[in-house]
Design a protein around this nucleic acid. Structure first.
Length: 424
RNA sequence: GGAGAGGUGGCAGAGUCUGGUUGAAUGCACUGCACUCGAAAUGCAGCAUACCCUAUGGGUAUCGGGGGUUCGAAUCCCUCCCUCUCCGCCA
């Protein structure tokens, strides 16, 4: 949610930012409603003041055994008007609130302006192209011949997009998750958390999934809960409604969770294999930081995710999203993409975003400044560190041998145990 | 699922029966000042949040959420939510 005061004071800047995100919102209407709201508040508060003063007089009169019926009559009348205005105020405020919840975050000034994702600048490239002489197999061919997963049976159990990992595939999946968690905990100083995979309406609203994107999620209507699309949701809400001490910032959590996405509207796109799923595994990084340092923290966060890819020896590149490609809640975002040699294309495995105070305002996540003892909104960031499906795809494709076996990166050795690194 | 207890400021904890200058005692934590070579201890002072306005000041609201009674509600009534204890069930 944007600060209504900011909308008031920097109207043009806000309008331009939202326009650059390619979203149309009637800011003028919001300002008009805000004006009405403030007028009503001023009026009703004056009346309440009058009532309070007279009520207090009633109290003194009664204490002195004096008649107060005139005063009581007067406040009764005022009370009636107050009741009407209170109602008016409530209506106006809820209407304004609804509108504000629909407004996306504004892009940071450093974000390149553009509407087409094809304009996303590549800001970094790492690694070298895997290009052996022999014909490359896709991850699907490799997975099938090595018995790593079974899409047919996954579909039987739940439906398409719900993968069943089998044998060494299941083990590799678990190995990747554990490797990434350990890496972030030990090398980058994150605190591990293991959150619920269901979240309530309030939680979903903080991070921006609700009210706008309900149809993207699986809902448990019986209990008004939603399956989380990412651990970002429950983890960001760990400090929802809290005031944390400034000294403990930045707080950084990493979390493994299954993620559930309906992917409504993307049918037909990337339906094969692991490229787009309804359920997948992800290690997520979430940071709560001081507003002054959030952009430095974003660079660090991105670096933390990159190091996972480097440790696995995978070719990747980093793109910066143009304004029009930014998600609803993000002010700035980098995507990390892996090169899948057999797919012959880049696959997104991580998004690292700074939400500034957008989520913090929705979730009332604040810190107490040690300088002036004031309570202020902090900034929230998160990034995938990283999602497994496309990681698995690129690992299989990048480490495949000519004979159709896969020789996994050395760093996974402790995690693959007796299965070994050579999947034949 | 059954029975009971309870939700008050950053935390702990009074006040609720008997409605009225109670935004809320007290303690802790925190901030400033004094004392000190410095620190601890001690003393003094300050210290909730949000919003509104004719804005170095004034006002309104907030004691789990919502509604009601009343001139006036932390305090009385209704309702919802949550937490805890005991019993039952259970991975």
């Amino acid at each position: 949610m944007l600060d209504i005061q900011k909308i008031r004071e920097q109207t043009d800047w806000v309008k331009r930012g939202i326009q650059n995100k390619n979203i149309s919102v009637d800011i003028d209407n919001i300002l008009k409603l805000d004006r009405v709201r403030r007028d009503v508040i001023a009026e009703v508060e004056n009346l309440k003041h009058d009532r309070n003063v007279i009520s207090m007089e009633v109290g003194t009169h009664k204490k002195n055994n004096q008649d107060a019926s005139d005063l009581i009559q007067k406040t009764r009348e005022i009370g009636q008007t107050i009741k009407e205005l209170d109602e008016r105020q409530r209506d106006v405020e809820s209407e304004l609130q609804d509108l504000l919840m629909q407004i996306p975050n504004t892009p940071h000034d450093s974000v390149p302006v553009g509407l087409d994702p094809l304009e996303n600048p590549v800001v970094k490239e790492w690694g070298s192209r895997f290009n052996p002489g022999y014909k490359l197999k896709t991850h699907l061919e490799l997975g099938e011949s090595l018995g790593l997963f079974d899409f047919t049976r996954g579909t039987k159990i739940a439906g398409p997009g719900f993968p069943l990992y089998t044998g060494n595939g299941a083990r590799l999946e678990r190995a990747l998750i554990n490797f990434m968690l350990d890496f972030h905990i030990d090398k980058h100083g994150y605190t591990e958390v293991l959150p619920p995979v269901l979240s309530n309406v309030k939680t979903m609203t903080t991070t921006g999934q609700l009210p706008k994107f309900e149809e993207d999620m699986y809902k448990i209507s019986q209990d008004d809960l939603y399956l989380i699309p990412t651990a970002e949701v429950p983890v960001t809400n760990i400090h929802q409604g809290e005031i944390v001490q400034e000294q403990i910032l930045p707080i950084q959590y990493c979390a493994y969770s299954s993620c559930f996405r309906r992917e409504a509207g993307s049918y037909g796109k990337d339906t094969r294999g692991f490229l787009r799923l309804h359920q997948f595994n992800k290690v997520e990084l979430v940071k709560f930081v001081h507003p002054d340092t959030s952009y430095d923290e974003l660079e660090k966060l991105r670096r933390d995710a990159e190091e996972i890819l480097e440790a696995l020896g995978l070719e990747y590149r980093v793109i910066e999203l143009v304004t029009g490609d930014l998600s609803f809640a993000a002010a700035k975002c980098y995507d990390l993409e892996l090169w899948a040699p057999a797919e012959n294309r880049w696959l997104e495995v991580s998004s690292c975003s700074n939400y500034e105070d957008f989520q913090a305002r929705r979730g009332a996540i604040r810190y107490k400044s040690s300088a002036d003892n004031k309570v202020r909104l902090l900034h929230t960031l998160n990034g995938s560190g990283v999602a497994t499906p496309r990681l698995l795809v690129t690992i299989l494709e990048t480490y495949q041998q000519e004979d159709g076996s896969v020789l996994l990166p050395e760093i996974l050795a402790p995690y693959m145990g007796s299965a070994g690194l050579h999947l034949k």
